[in-house]
Design a protein around this nucleic acid. Sequence first.
DNA 1: GCTCTTATGTTATATTGTAACTCAGACCGC
DNA 2: GCGGTCTGAGTTACAATATAACATAAGAGC
Lengths: 153, 153
Amino acid sequence: MTRHDHQLHEGESLKSAARDRLTRQGEQWTDLRAAVFDALANFDKPASAYDVAEAVSSAQGRRIAANSVYRILDLFVTANLARRVESANAYVANQHPGCLHDCIFLICDTCGQTVHIDNDSLSSGVREAAKNAGFSAPRPVIEVRGKCEDCRD
Amino acid sequence: MTRHDHQLHEGESLKSAARDRLTRQGEQWTDLRAAVFDALANFDKPASAYDVAEAVSSAQGRRIAANSVYRILDLFVTANLARRVESANAYVANQHPGCLHDCIFLICDTCGQTVHIDNDSLSSGVREAAKNAGFSAPRPVIEVRGKCEDCRD
DNA sequence: GCTCTTATGTTATATTGTAACTCAGACCGC
DNA sequence: GCGGTCTGAGTTACAATATAACATAAGAGC
């Protein structure tokens, strides 16, 4: 696994890094977007758009439709503030927005806990293989389903 | 990309290889299962369970519920007769049942066409990385979204 | 044939994801 | 200020994907 020499944010620090990143792209950091990011970052495992909608609704004391959450999550994924975990139909906050990594998710089939690793040699190998097959602008999706240490017998 | 020295089946040959494989595992090769496998193998791109249900329904001249199709597709995936493409919520027939490969799907975001490659060194690298992170019994999901040769500008 | 098990049918419902249209506020030019 | 335009968000409706619970049918083994 590749070392990480960049900043790994959390809490307020992560939030402001996310805000910076988004505004730097010419997008607005609205109350709702902040609330969605907050909610997402506070989950300790990948959350579905509906989970996020529920969390935001209760944090805001009013009903936020899944619809709005989807729009914002899509924006976040595009802006690299969040990632979609394809094999779980769920989203996670990116712990280091502003840093472009292909990342690898390890998802526990039992408890749903997900850890995220970066391994540039693996992901570039996958990109390379796609390129050799004639694929351009590839977005690697590398996820591994298994059992985490805690859920092993 | 790794060479393939094993049999690559198609048409009737594929069908009988699938039947062999399934029966060898003590499962029955029923009419409906054969019809589902046929339908799946005849799609030229990943098909959703509902697509398959529709194809089977029209082939059989009676309504087959998605439900039944899901059950059979799950069985096929377990038995290695088919694969699930996670990032597309879809399934493809395995062209060489009986041969256990982690495989890599390249999915064109424009036309949906999917090609499947095997690269044991990449996939075992991914397995290895998961193992190092404490994950056991890992099932790698390696998919790449991009644009195929035909859909490139 | 009878029984036990497995496969399928049926219905209902949960979960995930989009579409279409409206409304509100910010910003801009006049 | 006034009217136009743009972006974000609200609202409603619906489409697509997936599972659950229970009833019935079909096969395998005796």
